[in-house]
Structure formats: structure tokens, C-alpha cells
Nucleic acid binder design. Structure first.
Lengths: 218, 218
DNA sequence: CGCTTAAGGTAGCGAACGCTACCTTTCCTA
DNA sequence: TAGGAAAGGTAGCGTTCGCTACCTTAAGCG
């Protein structure tokens, strides 16, 4: 989780119940500040005011503003990963026919992303401004991608590509990227449509099915 | 291009040749600074040093740091739009069969994005941190999307969707988003693969063809 | 309860940053 | 070639921001 090369971006874990609550308030305040003041407005003072906490309480857990942002970012990623693991461990998917499985996986991907909409909008969006987050981002997104790919790969025999694993990974990479972009950037990026609605999910699912399986009816 | 509501983010146009060159240096310096110091490092002093220019020379054209970033952003968008228009006006595409047309459109989309790789990496990536850019972003991306969609729609009769225009727009929205993500975030986001290579282009083209036209051989 | 340590608040230092008043140099036009 | 406008430089003001020294309060434990 942490690199020896980086200065010291680790979080000193809170030991008592009170400080755990305080730290949770700080992380949530971080998201809130990013949400309505952007990365420019993400100052120590702003986070402290939002969390009703003094700067020292903040520097008791973290070593710098950089480390604070990283903590906010990774806390959200952990939430996404938790949801993703619940999905990957769900035995219901084994019963589905390939096309239904692919559609279901896309739908779940989107619904998980939507459940973390506020975080994706506020944090992931501006995370590119943060050098260390950019360095680490690949691991997290890769882990998330593998999880979805793993479930879909139970249908590997009917995937119409020479390398099914690569095809599934590529496909869900695109699905995830498209969804994130859509949610995080909203209508602002590369898509004329305003929201993530049923049509979007159906469309994305259909694209995945056609790409992985060719034409399938039903 | 500018809103009455916003404070004053317009750029005072340079009148003499010398100041045009200076301004070009400033815009380029802005990209360079964002490239290797991130949004945090995008300070007036840093841009001035990079461009070998005094702060006053900068404030002669622009009114604030916010306006400077907006100018850097929009300068790059203009470059993308120029390339896109060249593509849209190219008569060669009318001769292609539908599947080849879709593949060509995808390839051109990617190649245009690649030609502006440095800008996409440095600027678009962190543009989400900028409130006004987020407000305006939709127009530009929409305009870019329409351009590509327009060319492909000459094949509207063979597009296997009830609403061909919507399908094409949706499709190229995804193509564009995937490409940008891939280039801007590099390996860091939602895709385990490291770069934009021929395989990526072929894959993306195939996805588009299968989505829009169903299975087509050759 | 009494001792130790963790947690949190107050107040403010030092540095960096956005921006500008003031002045000099370069360019355009008559 | 003189006059005025545009362009650019020097130096520094006022503010904000990241961070910390110092002190008070709360929690855990025998």
C-alpha cells in the first residue's frame, strides 16, 4: 500500500474510538470539500472547518496535505473494492447463460459505480492532479478490472476471440472507463447524453455482448 | 466562447507580432508546467519562468490565474477541433464500405488524439480541477463527437439500430472516452494494458463495427 | 483513583503565491 | 523621425496556506 520511495504518506491509525470517529469525519469532509470547492479549494483550513476539527487533529494522523488527499482517495477505493468483492463471490452468476452473464456483469459494474457516485465525481475526477495518486492508480483499477473479468471468464469457451482472457479484460476495462467517465465528468465529456440511465446500461451491455460473443438474441 | 456570468476570463488578444509570439510561449509553457508539476505546480511564477516572461506580460493578456488555465485549455481544444474538421471534410471516406468506414473513423479518432497526446495528458487530465472548464467542457466534447458521428452517418441505412443517429453518437462517445482515458491516464485507469498500440485500435474498431453493424467479415 | 498516553484545541510563524504600481523598451503610424 | 500606444521588466505588497510549538482535555488501565 505504501512505497519506501515516497516521503511518508502513510496514515497513523487511530487507536481510540473517539479518534476513529474523528478520522472518519475528516475523510468525509475531504470528499465534501472536493465536491463543492474543487482541488483548488481543498485546503487544510477548509477540511478542518467542514469536519469541525483543528489542524493538529488532522496532522496527528497524517503528515502532509498530500498524504491527506491520498488517504481520502484510498478510502474511497477501498469502498469500491469491497462492493466488487461481494459481486465476485456471489454464486448466482454461475447459473446464467453467457449473454446474460455479460449483461449482468455490465449492469453490476455500473450499479457499483453509481453507488459511489459522489466519491467518483468529487475525488477520482481530480485525482489526476495528484502525482502520487497517479502513480498508484493503476494497481487499484487493475484489481477492480480483474474482479469483473474473473466472473465473466466462466464463459470463456463461447467467447469469440483467440485470447478470451485478454478480450474480457479489454472489454471490462472499456466498460469501467466509460462508466467512470460518464459518472465523473457527467455530461461534460465525450458523450452528448446527460446521465447514466437504463438506456446507457442496456447500450453498454449490448456492446459488450456483441464484442465478446457476437450476435446473440435474447 | 465566453459567458456573461463569469467574472472576466476572456483573453485580450495580442495585437503585435512580438506579443503573439510571447503569448504562444506562455500557452506552451502552461502545458509544460502542468505536464511535469501537475495542477499544484501550476503557479504564475512557474509559468513565467518556463516561458521566460514577467508576470506583467501575462496579466496584460489575461485577468487571473483561472483565466490563464482556461486559455491553455481552450487553445488545446482548438487544436483538436482543427484536426477533427480536416477529417470531417475529407471526401475520401465517402468511398468506403460501412465496416471500413467505421474502422477508419475509429482509427482517425485515435490518431488525432495521439497527435495531441502531450496536451491530453497534461491539461485535459487535470481540467476537472477547474470549475469553469468543467462547466464548458460539454460543448467542446459534444462538438468533437458530432463531427465524427456526421461522417459515419453516411452509412445510416445499414446501422442495425432503431435510432442510427443516437447509436452512432453513443458509439463514438465511448470510442472517444476510451481513447482519452487510455492516453491521459496511461496505464493508470481501468485498463491493464500499457499503451495505445495497434491492437488497441483494432480492438476498439472491432467493437464499434460489431456494435453498429453486427458481424461483418473483411 | 492516579498515572500515562492519546486526542484535540489555540494561536501564530514562515514561506509561497496571486497580483500590481511604476518604469523602460519596442513597435506602429503619420 | 517624432509621438503615442503596446509590450515587457523590477520589485514588492497583502494575503493565504501549510504546518507546528505549546497547552488542555479525554480515554485506557493498574
Amino acid at each position: 500500500m505504501d512505497d519506501a520511495s515516497a516521503p511518508d504518506l502513510a496514515v497513523r491509525p487511530p487507536l481510540q474510538r473517539r479518534s476513529r470517529e474523528t478520522w472518519a469525519r475528516v475523510l468525509d469532509a475531504g470528499v465534501a470539500v472536493l465536491e463543492d470547492r474543487g482541488y483548488d479549494g481543498f485546503t487544510i483550513a477548509a477540511v478542518c472547518e467542514q469536519a469541525q476539527v483543528a489542524p493538529t487533529a488532522l496532522y496527528a494522523r497524517t503528515t502532509s496535505k498530500d498524504a491527506l488527499f491520498l488517504a481520502v482517495y484510498e478510502h474511497g477505493i477501498a469502498g469500491l473494492q469491497a462492493d466488487q468483492e461481494v459481486f465476485a463471490d456471489d454464486a448466482r452468476w454461475t447459473a446464467l447463460a453467457p449473454a446474460q452473464l455479460v449483461r449482468a456483469a455490465v449492469a453490476v459494474t455500473v450499479s457499483i459505480a453509481l453507488r459511489h457516485e459522489r466519491y467518483l465525481r468529487a475525488v477520482v475526477l481530480v485525482s489526476a492532479s495528484h502525482v502520487e495518486v497517479r502513480r498508484r492508480g493503476s494497481r487499484y483499477s487493475q484489481a477492480l478490472g480483474e474482479g469483473f473479468a474473473g466472473v465473466v471468464l466462466q464463459a470463456r469457451d463461447v467467447i469469440r476471440h483467440e485470447d478470451p482472457e485478454a478480450a474480457v479484460r479489454s472489454c471490462f476495462g472499456t466498460v469501467f472507463a466509460t462508466t467512470i467517465i460518464r459518472i465523473a465528468y457527467g455530461p461534460a465529456f465525450a458523450t452528448p447524453m446527460p446521465v447514466v440511465d437504463d438506456e446507457f446500461v442496456a447500450d453498454l451491455g449490448e456492446t459488450a455482448v456483441r464484442y465478446l460473443l457476437g450476435d446473440v438474441v435474447g
